[in-house]
Design a protein around this nucleic acid. Structure first.
Lengths: 188, 188
DNA sequence: CGCAATTCCATTGACGCCCAAATTTTCCCA
DNA sequence: TGGGAAAATTTGGGCGTCAATGGAATTGCG
């Protein structure tokens, strides 16, 4: 079979999106871009919806991202991550307070309509600079919503840093940290 | 088969394949070129499909290569490489966010139809400059998809650098890529 | 009573999946 | 060693289903 599992079928991709099943490779993968309609509604990509359904959370948990001008979204898995993070900080520390404020205080739980659409609040759109289009970006246990243009810039930056990071790693051990199939001429 | 022997029989080849043992050495080996049909579908070379089947991953995991303008593809083995890298970072660190953006956010899981074909997303094709033809290049635990022309250029560059590199190492053993068993015109 | 927000319904167009034919490649036999 | 038959792949299409959209109806609130 090609990809079942999801009660939802797969993906489409209106404006240049990848595909996806979105079952259980554990989370949100890939990215999708779509427009807000006249009423400000946006369809959550079907693959992501499948993950959310699996997660069992009713609605969509959303909060401004800590480091970037985007929105972090998810369900129970995301809440759990937040909870775990807070749990590691001392109860009344200033740091914990800050995180709590940022992660919980500013969050909202959006309703998802029958068609899988949500309406972002004005403040959320303002924070991410969203106007007419948004890009959903999978991050495994959560996904982010970006203004397309900003995402592209951020992505370029991310790739650049990752490249540098990898060079550091490669200087350590010649062999990739991937033992699986022994490679032959895996050259590059 | 037309050519066996060298896992590297680099040369052009209209659309067909060179030495394709793609049997069971547990990895993607050799390279193949094929066209996209009217619907934008491309058949994954049978040998590669066999490897994927062995890998057990349903679908094809794809993400833009960090180093070159090509697409890295694979199954669990590739996925694991990425997962392992991210696993070393803490959930809410800025670093992890950056990496998952570049790795998970840009990844796609393509569905493979009954005939072993996939449809590359627009963004993927744009990244690799793919239009009507693609070249599949084995890299052991993963394989890359290139725009034929770019691959040839990349190959020439790679060989050139490898040659220089070898000169520095001085002798020691004969030319690695000039395999013992002489091959007749490995198809050109 | 009017405006607005929400829910439901219908249409459009992709995309997933299946079936069939044309080539190409492999293997066997003369 | 050449030819030929069989099998496997690679192609091309067609059809059905489902997701994305847009609009209309209903309900709640100001």
């Amino acid at each position: 079979m090609v990809c079942r599992g999801a009660p939802v079928a797969f993906a489409r991709q209106a404006r240049g999106n990848p595909c996806g099943w979105g079952w259980g490779v554990d989370g949100f993968v890939s990215h999708y871009t779509s427009r807000l309609d006249a009423k400000g509604r946006v369809s959550i990509p079907a693959p992501f919806r499948a993950v959310l359904a699996r997660d069992g959370f009713d609605g969509l948990y959303v909060h401004p991202s800590l480091d970037v001008e985007a929105l972090d979204c998810g369900g129970h898995a995301l809440l759990r991550e937040i909870h775990d993070l807070l749990g590691k900080l001392s109860p009344y520390s200033e740091e914990r307070d800050l995180f709590s404020t940022a992660l919980i205080g500013t969050s909202e739980i959006l309703k998802v309509d029958t068609e899988g659409r949500v309406i972002l609040s004005e403040s959320a759109k303002a924070y991410a600079g969203i106007a007419t289009e948004v890009t959903f970006v999978g991050h495994g246990f959560k996904f982010q919503i970006w203004e397309p243009g900003r995402f592209l810039a951020h992505l370029a930056e991310a790739r650049s840093q990752l490249r540098d990071f990898r060079k550091q790693l490669s200087s350590r051990h010649v062999a990739p940290d991937t033992p699986p199939p022994r490679q032959h001429g895996a050259r590059e």
